[in-house]
Amino acid sequence: MLKYVIKRILLLIPVIFGVTALVFFIMSLSPGDPALAILGVDAEPEAVEALREKLGLNDPVIVQYGRWLWNFLHGDLGTSYASGRPVLEEYFYFFPGTFKLAFWSMFVAVIISIPIGIISAVKQYSLIDNVGMVGALAGLSIPNFWLGLMLIMVFALNLHILPSGGATAPGAVILPAITIGTGMTATITRMTRSSMLETVRQDYIRTARAKGVNSKKVITHHALRNALIPVVTIICMDFGYCLAGASTTEIVFAWPGIGRLTVNAINSQDRPLAIGCLAMTAIAICVSNMVMDILYAIIDPRIKLTGGGK
């Protein structure tokens, strides 16, 4: 197990290098001048030039990247141009918000999709199955920013029962969690359904039925436990992607989270913050994928952890 974890962490290193180099290069193509953006358009040309020199913007991109990488390896991701605070501090200031939202979104997704997935599988090709599957697909097809706005329109502006944004008011997490959660139901529902369908065809289910176990108990005790193993994987993977922050949802609900932080940083060409956020996101996704693989091996002892990659 330890060997496996070390191997995965070593594999993470080239990915982080690649991601940051790529983002660094793309952002350096931007015609905007960060120094001018910080000082404002009315700034003296000398002051702008001095700041460019101070920020190291006059060096070639490769030198800038080298310097960034060196600092990164020393745990320093630089300082945000906009707020003047260290990037890591900014990131971890917003991280709890995104984590909380990710947790509740997963909660919504799971309580909707697992029951629908089970019912669809048990009553395959029935009306419920068809409606459930199309409904799950519809959940995937609704743009998050639109669903968010519609929920605000109904529950905040017209019914006045839930706050329209922010994170401080009680119940503020409900609407954004529903928005993100419904988008994730499609994959989880389908996975639950196909996994259940596969499991109920297994020999031990037939044995249980033959023994005279009632069909409800067969489903809940025998089939469900085994069928949920691949579903747990999908859930963990979705959770990893949630940690990147749901940008449009966070913006619609003015939710203080990583997604909004990243989008604002990219939009305002706040390079240290943008690159720092994207690097941290890549790490978060890789780590959650690794945790998922390990969890998978714990839940299902038939799986052996070998090799690296995906």
Partner: peptide
Amino acid sequence: RIMEVLDGVPSFLMALTICASL
């Protein structure tokens, strides 16, 4: 491995970075 790097950033954020920079 190169594809893994491209995959390291969620596709939406990658697209956003490119749009904002170019």
